[in-house]
């Protein structure tokens, strides 16, 4: 199982948890399993075709998955997958 860190904007979709355990051997499988467990997450981060939206950054441990093998990046127990959309808040 891989730990998936959930950003604040998606926590409601996973019942308020900050991390979720998900199964799979690649980033794509882990995120797919996360969306199976919590379909509301899928509605936010996946396109109708099932691809990740471009505004969703995914990090494996501290490295950008885009610079690894994107959704094919292998992951396993002990790895952390972090979903990172940009945040706008600052001023008001």
């Amino acid at each position: 199982m891989t730990i998936v860190k959930i950003p604040p904007v998606l926590r409601q979709a996973v019942g308020g948890e900050r991390t979720v355990q998900a199964a799979g051997t690649t980033v794509g499988e882990v995120l797919g399993n996360l969306c199976d467990q919590h379909p509301a997450v899928g509605a936010q981060i996946l396109t109708p075709e099932g691809d990740l939206h471009k505004y969703v950054n995914v990090y494996v441990n501290d490295e950008d998955a885009r610079l690894l093998q994107w959704t094919d990046t292998p992951v396993g127990t002990g790895d952390t997958v972090l979903i990172l959309p940009a945040m706008a808040g600052g001023s008001r």
Partner: peptide, 14 residues
Amino acid sequence: LFPEPPPPDLAPSC
């Protein structure tokens, strides 16, 4: 870092 902003429902303001 962020090629595109998320849609408004994924990026609420404070």
